[in-house]
């Protein structure tokens, strides 16, 4: 494995889940939980003749960013598309549960200064959601993650990192949306229904899944950034994400909560305005929406480098937050 310093320079899209987990926290601070050495693969794959992995496609553990304990969940897209089965799901759920335990412990021990040691959860998503080979168990695990998210509300921040090739789709698409902060790269994608399924449902004329530019404009990092569905857009490197995490950790929790898109009646009402816009605008393409938000020549944004994009792109204005 690359050293931490080498990893920072590596492309996030090309790093594997374990490398990302190591690189997203301070140098030398990551400790893995239920690592491959614990040999806890899925018990359900062998009967289907499907290859097993000792980490079941997800790396979980703890590291530090400054003084703050950071519980990391990092999904591995190369293992069955990062899909969530029983073991994979249990690791995700327990990482959040342990972060909440850490929160209680820190509060007791440092009653006057616990904010500077406030634990956080960072999830690097690379998944299409439920693993079909153990679909029922995967589905139930998704519900447990959402349940833990609600427990974490107002206590510890949950931060989504989406910069992988597979992105964050299916049931994990709404898990991603339910986090406090979303950091994406241009290469990251976030949504519910993957391009192939949309094509299948609506026909190739309406949505051509092989059209990469179309796929990225619809669910990619730039679009989500303009829509305010992603809070931050970073370059495709481990350092890009790590440094953004450091910045987020400097903010008071009350500020972090303002990044939320959903999770209260007010936020639902804000989102409903957006749904009304969807109807009123009759947008056929995400670029129609970009234009609506004041980007006169939206096509120009597509190929723009990240630095220039961040300078010129106009985003949806939020009334809240």
């Amino acid at each position: 494995m690359l050293s931490w310093d080498e990893l920072q320079k590596a492309k996030f899209t090309e790093a594997n889940a374990r490398e990302r987990a190591f690189g997203l926290v301070d140098k030398g601070t990551f400790t893995e939980f239920v690592s491959p050495r614990d040999r806890m693969p899925s018990p359900h794959l062998p009967v289907l003749g499907e290859a097993i992995g000792y980490d079941d496609g997800v790396v979980t553990g703890i590291g530090l960013i400054g003084k703050r304990p950071v519980f990391v969940v990092s999904q591995e897209g190369r293992f069955i598309g990062g899909a969530v089965g029983e073991v994979h799901g249990a690791k995700m759920v327990q990482a959040i549960k342990l972060a909440l335990k850490a929160y209680e412990d820190v509060k007791v021990k440092y009653p006057d200064s616990y904010e500077e040691r406030l634990p956080a959860v960072v999830i690097s998503f690379e998944t299409g959601g439920v693993r079909l080979h153990e679909s029922n168990a995967g589905l139930l695990a998704h519900a447990e993650v959402m349940d833990q998210f609600q427990d974490a509300r107002g206590k510890i921040p949950i931060i989504a990192v989406i910069g992988s090739k597979i992105g964050c789709f299916g049931g994990m698409g709404f898990v991603g949306a339910a986090t406090d902060v979303i950091i994406m790269s241009e290469q990251g994608r976030l949504g519910l229904t993957g391009p192939e399924v949309i094509e299948q449902e609506m026909g190739k004329d309406e949505f051509d899944a092989s059209n990469k530019a179309l796929v990225f404009r619809t669910t990619g990092g730039k679009h989500k950034y303009i829509m305010q569905d992603a809070n931050f857009l970073v370059e495709d490197s481990v350092a890009g994400f790590y440094q953004q995490l450091q910045e987020v950790m400097k903010l008071p929790f009350a500020e972090i909560e303002k990044f939320r898109r959903i999770g209260s009646k007010k936020l639902v009402e804000e989102q409903l305005e957006l749904v009304k816009l969807a109807v009123g605008l009759g947008a056929k393409d995400s670029m129609d929406v970009w234009k609506y938000y004041g980007n006169e020549d939206p096509a120009k944004l597509v190929d723009m480098g990240p630095d220039e994009f961040l300078k010129v792109a106009k985003r949806r204005e939020r009334k809240l937050g």
Binding site: M1, N16, A17, S35, P36, R37, R39, A51, I52, G53, Y54, E76, R78, F79
Partner: peptide
């Protein structure tokens, strides 16, 4: 004491040495 390498992706494997 032990060492792990690789991802069980299609056409690939993981190796655990202990």
């Amino acid at each position: 004491e032990y060492s792990h390498l690789g991802v069980v992706g299609s056409g690939d494997l993981e190796v655990l040495m202990e």
